[in-house]
Amino acid sequence: MSIILSAIKSFRSFSGIYNFTVGNAIMLVVACVLMYLAIAKDFEPILLLPIAFGCFLANIPAAKGTFFSINPAYVRDLTGTVKPTALLDFFYFLVKSEILPPLIFLGIGAMTDFGPLLANPVSLLLGASAQFGVFVAMVVAKVLQFSIGQAGAIGIIGGADGPTAIYTATKLAPELLGPIAVAAYTYMSLVPLIQPPIMRLLSTHEMRSTVMEQLRPVGKLERILFPIVTTFVIAILLPPVGPLVGMLMLGNLLRESGVVERLSNTAANELINICTLFLAVAVGASMNAESFLNLQTLYIIGLGVIAFGFSTAGGMLLGDLMWVMSGHKINPLIGSAGVSAVPMAARVSQKVGQKDNPANFLLMHAMGPNVAGVIGTAVAAGIMISLLGH
Rank of each mutant, 00 (worst) to 15 (best):
I4E: 14
S13M: 12
Y18Q: 15
F20D: 11
F20I: 13
T21M: 10
C32I: 13
I39M: 04
I39N: 03
I39Y: 07
D42R: 00
I46N: 12
L47K: 09
F53K: 08
G54S: 07
C55Y: 12
F56D: 01
A62Y: 12
F67V: 11
I70V: 15
A73Q: 15
Y74E: 13
D77Q: 03
L78H: 14
L78E: 15
L78K: 13
T81H: 15
P84K: 00
T85Q: 12
F91T: 01
E98L: 13
L106Y: 08
G107S: 00
G107M: 01
A110G: 00
T112Q: 00
D113S: 09
P121L: 01
L125H: 03
F132D: 00
F132S: 08
G133W: 09
V136Y: 10
A137W: 07
A137M: 05
V143G: 02
I148H: 11
Q150H: 14
A151C: 02
G152M: 02
I154G: 00
G155S: 01
P163E: 01
A165W: 07
T168W: 10
L172G: 03
V182D: 09
V182R: 10
T186K: 01
L193D: 00
I194Y: 14
Q195W: 14
M199K: 05
L202M: 05
S203T: 07
V211H: 12
P217V: 09
P217Q: 08
R223Q: 14
F226M: 10
P227T: 08
P227I: 07
V233D: 00
I236N: 11
V241F: 05
P243V: 01
V245H: 05
M247Q: 08
L253N: 08
G258Y: 06
V260P: 12
T266F: 13
A267T: 07
L279P: 05
A280Y: 09
A282H: 03
M287L: 08
A289K: 08
S291M: 13
S291R: 13
T297N: 11
G302S: 04
L303M: 08
G304C: 08
G314S: 03
L317T: 15
S326A: 01
I330E: 03
G335F: 02
S336Q: 09
V339P: 07
S340K: 11
M344R: 10
A346Y: 04
Q350T: 01
Q350G: 02
V352I: 11
V352N: 06
G353I: 08
N357M: 01
A359M: 12
L363G: 10
G368S: 05
A372P: 05
G373D: 07
G376T: 02
A378V: 12
A380H: 09
